[in-house]
Design a binder for these strands. Structure first.
Ligand SMILES: [Zn+2]
Ligand SMILES: [Zn+2]
Ligand SMILES: [Zn+2]
Ligand SMILES: [Zn+2]
Lengths: 146, 146
DNA sequence: TTATAATTGAGACAGAATCTCAATATTAAA
DNA sequence: TTTAATATTGAGATTCTGTCTCAATTATAA
């Protein structure tokens, strides 16, 4: 698990530095969805001098290597997810609640697209949007005011 | 087509104002993926006094109503898409190129999740990430430097 | 060890998003 | 129509986010 990010960096010819390791530890420790600000904060537990610029640079680098994915979940914050195969989300477009689920049907389509467009597909995003049970109830009571 | 956004606003009890109409016209005119800044600029063609705050407020509102979806495409800019059924993307994680395609297999899974979690699903996101042909070639030549 | 070049932190900077509040416009009721 | 109640707005201040520069540091291979 820990190996994947580290090895991919190395194989691509990038140096394995203390700041990068701190960031990778954060990404691996959390199963979830981390904003750059959270990565910075948590990363300083491993490497106190960690700077904001380095966090952004490293998240971008890992994204370019296809190891992370930027996504908007719920409350309008960019976050990066470290994709586990077949891990996806159900998001309430009103209150922002996020439900995780592990189930997927995207592989065959991915295969087809890969051939059609000459892409080498590394991962995908599958997110459903809608209203959670609570927000459905709220909706019936009120109309108008937020 | 034009009706959908307008009617949904009304039905949810929100007022139909000139600034909102301008924004809706922009969203309908463009098939693509618009950043808030683009919506502001284009929206001023319909309603010159349109303000940035109103653009953000309206995009958020339409998102809460499940009519728009915030997404990161390619080069790290937030944009909002006005989902057309089965319209999705293939994104190069290195150079940011976006390929559109219209094909989808998410509906049955959506149905199942809806029942399992009590969500009312309104739409979904299905995006594939990988390397485009050019970036695959580049990768073979160099290792290391950006 | 040493040389080389990638990487870093700090802080300046630019741009994006949010907030406040008085002024305005929509809507429903009179 | 007219009016009253209230949602919505624009402008600008403000706060956050993300980028950039550059000298200092550090990983790596020789
Ligand atoms: Zn999947
Ligand atoms: Zn909800
Ligand atoms: Zn998750
Ligand atoms: Zn590419």
């Amino acid at each position: 698990m820990a190996k994947r990010l580290v090895d991919s960096l190395r194989e691509a010819g990038y140096r394995l530095t203390a700041p990068r390791l701190a960031i990778i530890k954060v990404l691996e420790a959390e199963t979830g969805h981390l904003s750059p600000a959270e990565v910075l904060e948590k990363g300083r537990a491993f490497y106190p001098a960690l700077s904001r610029a380095t966090v952004y640079r490293t998240l971008d680098l890992l994204t370019k290597l296809g190891l992370l994915r930027p996504i908007y979940l719920g409350e309008g914050n960019l976050c990066f997810i470290y994709p586990r195969e077949g891990h996806h989300h159900l998001i309430c477009s009103k209150c922002g609640m996020v439900v995780d689920f592990d189930e997927c049907i995207a592989a065959p389509l991915g295969q087809a697209l890969s051939e059609r467009f000459g892409f080498r597909i590394e991962s995908h995003l599958l997110e459903f949007y809608g209203l959670c049970e609570n927000c459905q109830k709220d909706e019936q009571k009120q109309a108008g005011g937020d």
